[in-house]
């Protein structure tokens, strides 16, 4: 069907929303509560647009296209209303961007900038909820929550867990566990990943650096065999945060508790940092040359005395294909045995 958006004629697909059609045509409509992988919500109203002939604005994220509609996405009226909506949100939002971990990666902040929201014309009550950080992984600052319900939707729709929902009504509505208890769930952290503001943040990333200070490297999670795409956020040779990659991936934006939160072992003080040789039952630090020479000497002695097949190698399902290939090549071509295996069986 044919629709006109900002004077552009677009062939839209039946059932597609105005937002989707506009996006395909390269027209950017701002959103806060919309997420392409979640059900359409229509709560934040930032994406509202004008359809000619209708006396009310509609949320472009929920309104399906209709044949021959004429849509305006960026008139003075709409921009003014969007600004009012942003002012309303900010009238109930702590003004602490200076210390917020989300700064620089915050959709609300970006929109406030784009729409030039400065002072707050709507002085009034602000929600004062204590921050919940008693769970092991996530800091939940409800005073920053904009009720976009991305977290509740991702938890229910994508994860099938439904640990959280919205309780109370109106101005005091709040995302909560049953009876507003401390968060206790699968801790996949997907709620954190979709939160557009600083309401949900990773506990271990707190204060470690903000988005513009970090390098981002796309890689693959090192836990189970699913092979989820992850993005490592690095500051000063330290991985400070893990997020699901935004690129196409098998996990499609999802991770589990391990992929999301179990990465600080990388910086563990327990890491082996130097080669060690056991002398009189105790490990002694050695140089690489010492360690390699000693190993080679011992392996050669044993090979000579007992034959190649008296040596075995356990390779690793945790290592890369390249590591494994070289390992078995060394065992076979170097040592001369097929005694090579890994823990595929456990």
């Amino acid at each position: 069907m044919k629709v006109t958006i900002d004077n552009k004629e677009i062939i839209a697909n039946n059932g597609e929303t105005i937002l989707e059609a506009a996006k395909r045509a390269g027209i950017n409509i701002p959103t806060l509560c919309h997420h392409p992988k979640l059900s359409n919500y229509g709560g934040c109203r930032v994406c509202m647009v004008e359809i000619k002939g209708m006396n009310r604005f509609v949320a472009s994220c929920t309104t399906p296209v209709a044949d021959n509609i004429v849509v305006e996405t960026n008139t003075t009226n709409i921009r003014q209303s969007r600004k009012t909506v942003l002012e309303l949100i900010l009238s109930d939002h702590p003004n602490d961007c200076m210390t917020c971990d989300k700064t620089g990666d915050c959709t609300l902040q970006d929109l406030a900038y784009e729409y030039g929201v400065k002072e707050n014309p709507y002085i009034g009550a602000m929600r004062q909820y204590p921050t919940e950080d008693k769970n092991p992984y996530i800091i939940r600052d409800f005073s920053k929550c904009i009720l976009c319900a991305k977290c509740t939707r991702v938890c229910n729709e994508i994860r099938g867990v439904g640990a959280i929902d919205i309780m109370k009504r109106g101005f005091y509505a709040k995302v909560a566990m049953p009876f507003d208890e401390v968060l206790d769930c699968e801790f996949c952290g997907n709620c954190v990943d979709v939160c557009p503001v600083g309401s949900l943040t990773e506990k271990i990333a707190k204060g470690k650096g903000r988005t513009w200070e970090t390098r981002k490297v796309d890689t693959i999670c090192a836990y189970c065999g699913v092979g989820c795409g992850i993005t490592l956020h690095i500051k000063d040779n330290t991985v400070i945060k893990v997020t699901p990659t935004e690129k196409e991936s098998v996990n499609n934006g999802s991770l589990c508790v391990k992929g999301k939160f179990a990465y600080d072992f990388i910086n563990s003080a327990d890491r082996l940092k130097k080669p060690l040789i056991k002398k009189d039952g105790k490990f002694v630090e050695a140089t690489w040359d010492e360690a390699i020479d000693y190993t080679v000497k011992r392996l050669k002695e044993i090979k000579e005395k007992h034959g190649s097949d008296s040596i075995g190698g356990l390779s690793s399902a945790r290592c890369t294909n390249e590591d494994n290939y070289l390992f078995q090549k060394f065992m076979r071509a170097g040592i001369g045995t097929n005694n090579v295996d890994h823990c595929a069986r456990y």
Partner: peptide
């Protein structure tokens, strides 16, 4: 007798092959 300090997944380039035989970059 000898312990050699290695690198974890975040410290090297390479590939993993996932359960659906998908070879992906590390």
């Amino acid at each position: 007798d000898v312990v050699l300090p290695a690198s974890c997944f975040a410290e090297k380039d390479g590939t993993f092959t996932n359960t659906e035989r998908r070879i992906q970059m590390v």
